[in-house]
Write a protein that binds this DNA or RNA. Structure first.
Length: 226
DNA sequence: GCCCAGGGGGCTC
DNA sequence: GAGCCCCATGGG
């Protein structure tokens, strides 16, 4: 499986180039984006980030101090904005209570321990916690998302029934523990999913997934979505 | 107008 | 642990 997963990445890299993820100019912006992007297209997140920037609320310390309803009003474009404003505050509350507001201190924790702590915060599930660990903390943690499940199960490599943890273990047991690789691999998957694997339009002639399907031993015709 | 987008929590059984 | 509902904007 190691060879297959490396070969898939090689072909994605060849097709799309390095994706240079995550979009965000600082670790703090990455964390804020990771929470805001839950179940919403990134374009909706962009305008919310710009709103926060304009109001000088794009740092965790500022969010920690800011009024909850003000935050909610600025991130309205990301859906579920009351919940997400609360989630942002839950994270900053955790950071300031346990690490004096210092990301350096927080990320100095052993990754496994920190992951458990992040998951204990209301509003942070596995994907969000892992995105923070990988993209803000530079930790070698593979991020699984809806596209990962959709694409790899359509390729006949995994089952859609597998849990998040099973998907993560599947990738991490096959790939070398390399944050740079995990970073771009996930970014490639999102790019592929975004451009070629929409829920109701799983394939098109240009889609690299046709080649990838052959790698996975499946054909588009044999997949339920194909 | 309709569809859906990079989730997560809470509740029920 | 699975199956459901809730949250609730904006672009194609």
């Amino acid at each position: 499986m190691t060879h297959l997963l490396n070969e898939i990445y090689r072909q994605l890299f060849q097709a799309f180039g390095h994706r240079h993820w995550w979009p965000g100019e600082s670790r703090e912006e990455v964390i804020i984006g990771a929470i805001l992007t839950q179940n919403v297209a990134w374009r909706n997140v962009s305008s919310a980030i710009e709103n926060l920037r304009k109001h000088r609320l794009l740092t965790l310390a500022d969010i920690h101090r800011a009024n909850l309803e003000l935050i909610a009003s600025l991130i309205m474009s990301t859906r579920f904005f009351h919940q997400k404003a609360r989630k942002l505050k839950n994270f900053t509350g955790f950071l300031f209570t346990n690490y004096s507001g210092s990301l350096d201190e927080m990320f100095a924790r052993p990754t496994c321990e920190l992951r458990k702590e992040l998951l204990s915060i209301n509003g942070l599930g596995e994907e969000t916690a892992d995105s923070i660990l990988l993209y803000a903390g530079g930790k070698a943690v593979f991020v699984v998302d809806a596209y990962t499940k959709r694409i790899f199960s359509r390729m006949g490599i995994t089952s859609e029934e597998m849990t998040y943890q099973e998907y993560q273990a599947f990738f991490m047991s096959a790939l070398k523990p390399d944050a740079g690789l995990y970073n771009d691999y996930h970014a490639q998957i999102v790019y592929l999913g975004h451009h070629y694997c929409k829920a109701k339009n799983p394939a098109c002639d240009k889609c690299p997934i046709r080649r990838l399907c052959r790698l996975g031993g499946a054909t588009l015709e044999s997949t339920p979505a194909g």
